[in-house]
């Protein structure tokens, strides 16, 4: 369930979109912008190193992504992007 600062009256009827985050690890230079500015705070540096020796981000809670694309548009490296999860009919 999504966390709200104030629960909207129509929270039951509004569908919050969900995203899948894709990361091209070897493009990442570890600036941390996506991690810092993801509004859902679901990204973190992974302990892994990529080819260039940076720690790329990883998704801590895949279900938490709301497909806002902010990580995608702030990334200077074309290394991260989100794609909408197709909603199953009726749900």
């Amino acid at each position: 369930m999504m966390e709200y600062w104030r629960t909207p009256f129509d929270a039951q009827t509004i569908q919050v979109s969900q995203g899948i985050v894709h990361i091209i690890e070897d493009r990442c230079k570890g600036c941390g912008y996506c991690i810092e500015f993801c509004p859902k705070h679901i990204l973190a540096f992974s302990p892994r190193f990529n080819k260039k020796g940076y720690h790329p981000p990883e998704v801590l809670q895949p279900d938490g992504c709301v497909n806002c694309h902010y990580c995608e548009i702030i990334c200077p490296e074309f290394a991260i992007y989100s794609v909408e999860v197709p909603t199953a009919p009726g749900g």
Partner: peptide, 29 residues
């Protein structure tokens, strides 16, 4: 799926030369 801007970048030249945290890449995107 590809990055949504993949068709507009010369992927063979990525990673680009810009330093980690440099603002140019974001403005370019």
């Amino acid at each position: 799926p590809d990055h949504p801007l993949e068709d507009l970048i010369r992927s063979d030249r990525i990673p680009h030369i810009w330093c980690p945290g440099c603002g140019i890449g974001t403005a370019f995107a």
